[in-house]
Design a protein around this nucleic acid. Structure first.
Length: 478
RNA sequence: GGGGUUGUAGUAUAACUUGGUAGAAUCCAAGGUUCGGGACCUUGUGGUCUGAGUUCAAAUCUCAGCAACCCCA
């Protein structure tokens, strides 16, 4: 047990989640604050997680024919004005730079890159042979938030990927919009062990300028939903205003269809909130930069023997990204706590007793279970346990999500469900006025998504009692 | 957008009410003893968020700025 208040996380996740969350991010050395309000430093340990996410998704994109590229940070004001809905949607949070063009035109720092990219697309796309065009960029984004900021979850500058594709046909665009959303779901569930709800956004919540927006939503332990990624079918609106067209095989000019899709460093925030506990960060093995840490335990006379054996074990397990903590001057207990704070999935303790018994002690971060494992079985045991931790974390989160969804039949039930920090699954007509009203009356519940396989509608809208078009998940959200 | 709380070594704090030498801890550095769940001794480095004002004198009182956190929209 920690004796000093300032050593571990000093509040319980269940009692003060905002404070707990900040402490875990800071003390696990994922992130730090920076002097400009609403900005943050992603520290090496946090960035290592982002790199793992990038590695995973770069492979996915490569397999789908998406190329990485980079477009400028600065966007001319006139570009925003071309697509009215888009301009209106982003206007409140665009940051403008002081420097202007020689003609006096203002420049924005990109809040998203549709306009600057499609200017180029219009030059590059001439023929049906140029399609489909699939380009992604990894970059920083600036949205000058006025509401409260939170590490990873909401900051004025963040990192993301944005994919922008152009297709000859609507069908192809529809298919790939969904395909990329599906890849996001796989990333969240397989890599991050975070279950998600998948569906469409309502008209109120869709991306400014899109024909429709699809989304994956996760549900945090404090009862708030978190958008994990979105994929938009942009229709032909942007193509029209940016002059993107191609000559078809029929020798006629056509307007193409476009999609865009993105996820951000927010995923790291979701990762922290979903799995971690009162001892600090808990990382699913697949995303953990270090999966196994070895702690040697010795008195001075045993030191050489223990370290030799510890190095042998490290070598044997090197395919799991294993670290040997052989620092002098820290007791084993200190090291246990530190690596628990940083969420390393598996700990191996090796001391004189273990060497004698040809074994090591294996300790899981997710449930603290300790077990003696014979050296001959270690490789297979580590492999199995890492897999089991990954599955266990997903299952816990998935059970929580399932338990949190409450089917409601009227407004009173919806309101009650939101007050109890659950997700209400409600019949809904889809009108913006109704959604505004629900948000207002429930103290902030927004529609998270209309599931793709929405059950047959048999009821009336919870707000206006007209026949409902579909069922929608409502929850408060980050 | 509205309201509230807070800001003192790297961290977490004491002194603030009643203005008067910023003090213990921990971290960090050096040396020594330790080492199976946050060990200990000795020595050392390091601090009042920024800027104005009041005052002989400001960590303390006033104002503004900046930042963090919380609640509500």
């Amino acid at each position: 047990m920690a004796k000093e208040e300032n050593k571990g996380v000093t509040v319980k996740k269940s009692e003060d989640m905002p404070e707990w969350y900040s402490q875990v991010c800071l003390k696990a050395e994922l992130a730090d604050y920076s002097p400009v309000k609403g900005t943050m430093v992603i520290r090496p340990y946090g960035y290592a997680i982002w790199q793992k996410i990038m590695d995973h998704f770069n492979k996915v994109m490569e397999s789908k024919g998406v190329k990485n590229a980079y477009f400028p940070l600065f966007i001319p004001e006139s570009f925003f004005k071309k697509e009215a809905e888009h301009a209106k949607g982003f206007a409140p949070e665009v940051a403008w730079v002081d420097a202007k063009s020689e003609e006096g035109e203002k420049y924005a720092l990109r809040p998203t890159s549709e306009t600057i990219m499609y200017y180029s697309y219009a030059k590059w796309i001439r023929s049906w042979r140029d399609l489909p065009l699939r380009i992604n960029q990894w970059c920083n984004i600036v949205r000058w938030e006025v509401s409260d900021c939170k590490l990873f979850i909401r900051s004025r500058e963040f990192l993301w990927q944005e994919g922008h594709c152009v297709y000859a046909s609507e069908g192809e665009c529809d298919n790939e919009t969904l395909m990329f959303l599906g890849e996001y779901k796989k990333l969240c569930q397989d890599l991050l062990a975070i279950p998600v709800l998948m569906g469409k956004k309502t008209d109120k919540e869709k991306f400014a300028g899109a024909k429709y927006t699809t989304t994956i939503e996760s549900f945090m332990p404090d009862g708030k939903a978190l958008q994990m990624g979105t994929s938009h079918n942009l229709g032909q609106g942007f193509a029209k205003v940016f002059g993107i067209s191609y000559l078809g095989e029929d020798e006629k000019k056509h307007i193409p269809w476009q999609s865009s899709w993105g996820f951000s460093t927010r995923l790291i925030g979701a990762l922290v909130m979903t799995h971690s506990d009162d001892k600090g960060l808990v990382l699913p093995p697949k995303i953990a930069p270090t999966k196994v840490v070895i702690i040697p335990i010795y008195k001075e006379k045993d030191k050489a023997d223990v370290l030799r054996k510890a190095n042998e074990v490290k070598d044997k397990l090197k395919k799991y990204s294993v670290e040997l903590d052989d620092r002098d001057g820290y007791t084993p207990g200190w090291k246990f706590n530190e690596h628990e704070m940083k969420g390393i999935p598996l700990r191996i303790e090796i001391g004189p007793k273990d060497i004698e018994n040809k074994q090591v002690i294996l300790v899981r971060r997710d449930n603290s279970k300790k077990e003696a494992v014979k050296l001959v079985d270690l490789d297979i045991k580590v492999s199995e346990t890492l897999l089991n931790i990954q599955q266990n974390l997903f299952k816990k989160a998935d059970d929580y999500l399932s338990r949190s969804i409450i089917k409601v039949e009227n407004f009173e039930q919806l309101d009650n469900t939101i007050k109890h920090k659950k997700i209400a699954f409600a019949s809904f007509c889809g009108r913006v006025e109704c959604e505004d009203h629900i948000k207002d009356k429930t103290g902030g519940a927004t529609s998270r998504c209309i599931p793709f396989k929405s059950p047959p509608v048999d009821g009336l809208c919870v707000n206006c009692n007209t026949p409902a078009k579909y069922r929608v998940y409502f929850a408060k959200a980050y």
